[in-house]
Computed example of a mutant assay.
Amino acid sequence: MWLSVLKDEEESVTPEFLSVRYPIVNWEYQLHGRMEMKDMEAYKLTRADGTVSFHGGTESLFRRLDRDDLKVLYKLVQERFEDHSLEEKELILWGDLRMMFDPDEQDEIWKNQESWKVLRWRLYENSGVHSVFLTDTPMEINMLVEKKYPLKKEILEKMINLKLQAEEESTMAFELIKFTRSQIEEKQ
């Protein structure tokens, strides 16, 4: 199951609870959080009702959160960044969200696309995010489905040739493929 909401160990999560969405009010990166009974690194998100969810990385965030959650998380990360410097994993999250919501064509990442070796292209429909995973580096480029990014024609073609990986066939998946093909046509 893709949704995982964890409460304090003594409490259980009821189906009624899952039907109500509370906004995220806090986030932190824990070096030794508990997730699935293992010690590991994770982003800990706290909602207004006190429930907590743990996410091992950005892929987990994109799978489990919706667009509104991502917007709120980005705002919270920006506020923390204004108040003090972020640690390594916090800075990575801030960079991923900033590049996704406020891309800057002058960022080095967009200028170095010639060196990108695209491994796979994946859609996270719940959040409306699609990601391009690169080989030779543990990096992924995360993008909103409806937004244009400064991708070169060669990268767009590689994405189409790899085929979009999605949980299931959907209107969003087909529209993203169509949108990507239209961007290739524009660059001709």
Score class of each variant (00 low, 15 high):
residue 110 W to Q: 09
residue 78 Q to V: 11
residue 102 D to L: 04
residue 45 L to I: 08
residue 87 E to C: 05
residue 125 E to H: 05
residue 139 M to Y: 13
residue 19 S to E: 14
residue 138 P to G: 15
residue 80 R to P: 03
residue 178 K to R: 12
residue 161 N to Q: 15
residue 4 S to L: 02
residue 13 V to W: 02
residue 98 R to N: 14
residue 132 V to P: 08
residue 15 P to E: 10
residue 82 E to D: 11
residue 80 R to E: 12
residue 47 R to W: 04
residue 76 L to N: 07
residue 148 K to S: 15
residue 78 Q to N: 06
residue 41 E to L: 09
residue 89 K to G: 00
residue 38 K to P: 00
residue 119 L to R: 13
residue 51 T to D: 13
residue 176 L to P: 09
residue 153 K to I: 03
residue 81 F to M: 06
residue 163 K to G: 12
residue 62 F to P: 01
residue 26 N to P: 00
residue 70 L to D: 00
residue 171 T to M: 12
residue 38 K to G: 07
residue 177 I to V: 15
residue 174 F to D: 14
residue 159 M to Y: 09
residue 175 E to Y: 06
residue 101 F to H: 05
residue 80 R to M: 08
residue 98 R to W: 00
residue 56 G to T: 11
residue 78 Q to F: 07
residue 148 K to D: 15
residue 166 A to F: 02
residue 49 D to V: 03
residue 171 T to K: 14
residue 110 W to D: 10
residue 171 T to S: 13
residue 53 S to V: 02
residue 54 F to E: 05
residue 41 E to N: 09
residue 136 D to G: 12
residue 174 F to E: 15
residue 29 Y to Q: 04
residue 141 I to N: 04
residue 171 T to D: 13
residue 170 S to K: 04
residue 65 L to R: 02
residue 111 K to Y: 05
residue 168 E to T: 09
residue 35 M to E: 10
residue 126 N to A: 05
residue 151 L to R: 07
residue 146 E to M: 03
residue 106 Q to V: 02
residue 45 L to P: 03
residue 53 S to Y: 03
residue 21 R to W: 01
residue 111 K to D: 13
residue 6 L to N: 12
residue 129 V to Q: 03
residue 113 Q to I: 11
residue 127 S to T: 03
residue 3 L to R: 13
residue 39 D to C: 09
residue 4 S to A: 01
residue 98 R to T: 15
residue 75 K to Q: 13
residue 176 L to H: 10
residue 90 E to F: 07
residue 122 R to S: 13
residue 183 Q to R: 15
residue 71 K to S: 06
residue 154 E to P: 01
residue 153 K to P: 00
residue 86 L to T: 12
residue 16 E to Q: 13
residue 83 D to P: 01
residue 68 D to G: 06
residue 34 R to V: 06
residue 134 L to Y: 02
residue 15 P to T: 00
residue 59 E to V: 03
residue 159 M to L: 15
residue 70 L to A: 00
residue 36 E to V: 06
residue 74 Y to L: 08
residue 72 V to R: 12
residue 78 Q to D: 09
residue 18 L to K: 12
residue 88 E to T: 10
residue 164 L to A: 12
residue 140 E to P: 00
residue 20 V to M: 06
residue 76 L to R: 02
residue 82 E to S: 12
residue 67 R to V: 00
